[in-house]
Design a binder for these strands. Structure first.
Lengths: 250, 250
DNA sequence: CGGGTAATTGAGCTGGTTCAATCTGAGTGG
DNA sequence: CCACTCAGATTGAACCAGCTCAATTACCCG
């Protein structure tokens, strides 16, 4: 699991910290305390293990993270992907145990803040608290949508939904132009995300391509060719979905 | 969907409002503003529809609620059950649309608070904010656990987990004595909760009974006879699970 | 060139669904 | 008191979507 970084990590120096769609820190005294908590992590590194004592939150600055849980026999379920501006709060009801694992999918830069510090930051800055509220709300909505597909959707529906969700989330980050985007994922990731086998992900994706719903290049450069048809398969309305799962500026 | 109340609703007058494991309001000036927001709702009443403009949170005082989403073809996925002390915050990223439906499973009493009022209450009372934090953390952990089963678990695993989760959650409410408890649910509810057909829920429950894992009476009075065996089937550790999904006093 | 990971495709199997019949218990009206 | 109804539970039988196992290909990197 603890992988190697295939390419050297190089990120621009942070001018600010973004939470959802809102930027913080420029000229903010709080930024100073952030700076020393920033770390770069290589792809596939486990940041936090389900069940560990956690006591911190993780803010994604660059790259992709994923939260996950594993069954005893080693099967993995990805709970959510975390993109820049997202916040992972793994704390469960006891206030310390992590309720899921957090791992870097790509090389990433994160800001790790101990819970007490985080709570005082939230208490000190209403805009920060509001932005965090939006990010949490977006995640809640994503989880509900995904839970519906996991429980009631077909393989096609799950994968179609996943593609649309990721497309919509990448758009405000400037990573999805005209429904074309790159997923730094393997088919296994998509399988772990949708509760399917990698084999069946492959078959289903191929079928989408055959039917002209999507195009692929380089295996993970995706272009959604027929969004409304894909949305039908997913049982989703893209516009409403975007409003519900994408944090807004405020 | 808008059902009839089979029995008249009768609840004790509220002395206080409980959030998670913490009671508020006795002598608290904020209680006064709560009181007028309390309402009783009959079983099967829809309190909020997925996609509606919401702008409020719902605190459960008595009875069971459920949050859910439905697919276009009418299949239902229950996202979570809400028990007394739980808080439903259906707001999604846009700050107003409800990301799921909320309905009363049994006759219930709830306290409905508009979001602005709720936010000022949270800002005014650190203990309230902390209690809410715990309730949210408990819900997050439950969702992750359930997502793992939905994506990767067998029917047996999902149902075993659901029984254990509900048993653990009912215990601190005084509704589960010695792993024996009543579920005010039909097998259809359990199916919608676990992403299975009611038929298969029935078969699986019968198998549990045949194998001595659980006993049932009156169809929905459940007794877990062999917790450790059931936990094995569920792939769960009851003690750790209880800590993660049950709000603590503080 | 060799080795390792990911994708692709085929073939057969199976857990859970669907459809359908029966059974049970509570409520209702006579 | 019984007949009727209706929702839920139970059980059987056939079916099928997605899984497993397995072989092949493509690609990257040393």
């Amino acid at each position: 699991m603890t992988g190697h970084a295939p390419i050297p990590i190089q990120f621009a120096e942070p001018a600010c910290l973004r939470i959802g769609a809102v930027e913080f820190g420029t000229g903010d005294p709080a930024l100073h305390s952030f700076r020393k908590n920033i770390q770069t992590v290589p792809a596939n590194r486990l940041l936090l293990q389900d069940g560990d004592d956690s006591g911190k939150i993780i803010i994604v600055m660059d790259g992709w993270l994923a939260t996950s849980k594993s069954s005893l026999n080693g099967e993995v379920q990805l709970i959510d992907f975390l993109l820049p501006g997202d916040v992972a709060d793994p704390t469960s009801a006891d206030g310390k145990t992590a309720g899921f694992s957090v791992e870097a999918v790509t090389d990433a830069r994160v800001c790790v803040i101990p819970l007490p510090a985080w709570h005082s930051l939230l208490a000190a800055s209403a805009p920060l608290a509001r932005a965090h509220e939006h990010v949490q709300a977006a995640e809640r909505s994503r989880l509900s949508e995904r839970m519906l597909r996991l429980g009631r959707g077909s393989a096609e529906g799950r994968i179609a939904y996943a593609l649309i969700e990721l497309c919509l989330r990448l758009k405000p980050l400037g990573l999805s132009e005209n429904c074309a985007f790159h997923l730094p994922l393997t088919q296994r990731h998509i399988g772990d995300f949708t509760g399917l086998t990698a084999v069946h992900v492959c078959r289903t994706l191929r079928r989408f391509v055959r039917n002209g719903l999507v195009e692929t290049a380089d295996h993970m450069d995706i272009r959604i060719n027929d969004l409304s048809a894909l949305a039908d398969v997913a049982g989703a309305e893209p516009d409403r979905l975007a409003a519900e799962i994408t944090p807004v500026p405020d």
